[in-house]
Structures are given as structure tokens and as C-alpha cells.
């Protein structure tokens, strides 16, 4: 390495070598470099510090930085592995890896469980599901009577909470999603297959010689 320090490494705290990131994930080196193009664009949209803050994440998701959204906040918190309030490039690639079509089903199920376990108790509790349901209704400007919400919760817990202790543990969740595979659709992003075509400029900015695709 000597004293050479890449431009990316200097400008992007948490930047990691694409070859190393590719070896830890389902992404090829080219795909990691294409993701870096996306990362650069998102991380410079509000504050050009080489990191993605929550406002930038919201802006990228909704094209609106002021929009508050429980689910987007939750995803951000799970991407922010180091809990620093910002997502660095290494975290970004490893988190998106879970959404890769080739990522393991177990990892996807595990991530979805943590996503819905809002308080991080190791269980998806009824009050958490209710909170998410109400947030969804507000987001979509739908109105449902309290009674209807309770009926939906009753139905959900009668199906998912097999031991009927009022909360869904990880084993119950695994069983529930195996019976409801459509719930895992959001855990796969087909876009990730075409990432090098979406961000072809990675070729001009590559710091890796002889990219293996």
C-alpha cells in the first residue's frame, strides 16, 4: 500500500475496498463500484461529507427530505450498524446485500424480523404491530375504525403467534413467513441485479484494475 491513499478513501469515511466488500457479499467488484456511484450521489445530496444521514436517506427514498416515515426510519436504523446516525459506504453495501436476489433466505427473514421488532426486544409485540399499522394508515391516508384495526391484529396474532403468548418470537416468525411467502417480497430488490447498467459511470471512476464481473 505504501503511502498511497485513494481519493475515495480520503473523501468517504468508512470507505472500504470494493474487492473486500465483494468478497463479503453477493455483489461482484463491479457491482460494489456501481453502488459507490449511487452512494456518492445520495451522500452528497444535503451535506457533502461522504456519509448518508437520515435526511439524505429520506430524500433518496421519497424525493422529499422533510417526510417522516416510521418504516424508512427503521430501515435507516438497521443500515446504521455502528449507530452513529449516519450510514457509511461499507454499511450501505453490507445492508443492501440482504436485499440481493442471491442473498440467503434466512438472512432476509432475520432482517425482516428485526425490522418489525421496533423496540429490539427479540419479539414482535402486538403494540409494535399496531404502531406500524397506524403509521401505514396515516401514510396512505386511509381510515379504519379502531375495531377493524383490532380485528386485523387478532387475525394476525391468531395466525402468527402459535403459542399465544401475545408476541411473535423468531421461530414463530420463520414459520409464519414460510406460510405467507409474499411477506418476503419486500426483502428482494431486483434492481440490484442491474446495478452496473443503472450506474455505468463506475467504469470511469474505478480504482480497481482488471475488474472481474
Amino acid at each position: 500500500m505504501g503511502c498511497f491513499q485513494s481519493k475515495a478513501r480520503r473523501q468517504f469515511p468508512g470507505y472500504e475496498d470494493p474487492v473486500s466488500l465483494a468478497s463479503q457479499t453477493a455483489f461482484s467488484v463491479s457491482e460494489v463500484e456501481a453502488l459507490f456511484e449511487l452512494f456518492k450521489s445520495i451522500s452528497s445530496s444535503v451535506v457533502d461529507d461522504g456519509l448518508i444521514n437520515k435526511e439524505e436517506f429520506h430524500l433518496a427514498l421519497f424525493k422529499n427530505r422533510k417526510r417522516e416515515n416510521l418504516f424508512a426510519n427503521r430501515i435507516f436504523d438497521l443500515f446504521d450498524v455502528k449507530q452513529k446516525g449516519v450510514i457509511d459506504f461499507g454499511d450501505f453495501v453490507r445492508a443492501l446485500n440482504v436485499f440481493h436476489p442471491n442473498a440467503s433466505h434466512e438472512d432476509k427473514v432475520d432482517f425482516s424480523f428485526r425490522l418489525y421488532d421496533l423496540d429490539g426486544t427479540g419479539f414482535i409485540e402486538r403494540k409494535e404491530v399496531k404502531q406500524m399499522l397506524i403509521a401505514l394508515l396515516c401514510e396512505s391516508e386511509m381510515r379504519l375504525a379502531d375495531e377493524t384495526i383490532e380485528i386485523i391484529l387478532d387475525k394476525t396474532f391468531s395466525e402468527a403467534d402459535v403459542n399465544q403468548d401475545g408476541k411473535i418470537d423468531k421461530l414463530e416468525w420463520q414459520d409464519f413467513v414460510s406460510r405467507n411467502p409474499s411477506l418476503m417480497k419486500i426483502m428482494t430488490l431486483p434492481y440490484l441485479r442491474d446495478i452496473t447498467t443503472t450506474f455505468p459511470s463506475f467504469v470511469f471512476n474505478s480504482e480497481v484494475e482488471d475488474i472481474a464481473t
Binding site: 427514498l61 419486500i186 430488490l189 443503472t198
Partner: peptide, 25 residues
């Protein structure tokens, strides 16, 4: 009918869970 769906089917339709928009330029 929403009442016939389980809560997670509804929740998974949230825009905030659709990361696909990250890839739209």
C-alpha cells in the same frame, strides 16, 4: 377487504419499505 388481510401484508405495502426508489435517478 383489509379486514381479511393480516397486518404484515398491509404493512409490507408501505412506501417506506420500498427501497426500489433509491435506484431511481
Amino acid at each position: 377487504k383489509p379486514s381479511l388481510m393480516n397486518a404484515f401484508e398491509l404493512i409490507s405495502t408501505s412506501q417506506g419499505l420500498n427501497l426500489g426508489t433509491l435506484f431511481e435517478k
